[in-house]
Amino acid sequence: MIRFESVEYIYPNGVKALDGIDLEIGDGEIVTIMGENGAGKTTLIKHLNGLLKPVKGKVLIDGIDTRKVTVASLSKKVGIVFQNPDDMFFSENIWEEIAFALRNFGYDEEVVKRRVENAINFMDLASYVDKSPFTLSGGEKKRLALAIVLAWSPDIIALDEPTIGQDILQKEKLLQVIKLLNSQGKTIIISSHDVEFIADLKPRIILMKRGKVIADGNAEEIFLNEELLKSCNLLPPQLITLSRELEFIGVRPRLYSPRELAAEIMTRLQR
């Protein structure tokens, strides 16, 4: 369970990035944090493992106050995959990169080996094991960053803008990975403004603006509220717009998948 209680965060340059955040995220939830550039999404994510600590209020992870423990101890519970994976890498090859954190956590070499291999297979990185992380393409780096976190299997996994620069095939793979992890009981927190990706995932959406939470609801409810989206520099998914324009043939505005909407239109046209 993640709890934010009246959390405020002010950067050293005086910018107030979080302004009174109250939030509760239950175990096993998939939550997306959406909002325009600069709304405070990344700052909020950095509070999950204590990388940033609240200036006012507190963040509790399973009841543990992030101000009272080290980032290293929280990292066992919370894994963050950053937007720019280059910030995470330093090892000579991919195998060592994934193994590093596990060794730091004090696992036996045998466990390290098994977990690294699992993570490599899970993220389709087997053909790259001997490569340097820095020679990978942008999409491959993102996969490696996720593999590193998956290897130590934290209960809470946060992904900061995971779809930036990813093509549609990589996004589909990411969607499957997120659903699979969630089915294993992991709590998944994603910051993103990729509305089409989020439309496929249909998670709970927390909408942020200027450091505040301005809405919290299910994907359909949020995406149907055009005014609210606009105020956060977001556009509705294209099929919400299409379903709204199709009201003249009797289609009800909803968050359809392409197949659902196609079936709905054909039914209406046959009448």
């Binding site: 549609i168 996004k171 299409l242 392409p258 079936a263 239109i265 046959q270």
Partner: peptide, 19 residues
């Protein structure tokens, strides 16, 4: 890896349904 617009996907799905 090309993400086609969702409206195009809808038309493709309509075609699959037939008629």
């Amino acid at each position: 890896g090309v993400s086609i617009p969702r409206v195009v996907e809808v038309v493709r799905e309509m075609r699959k349904i037939g008629g």
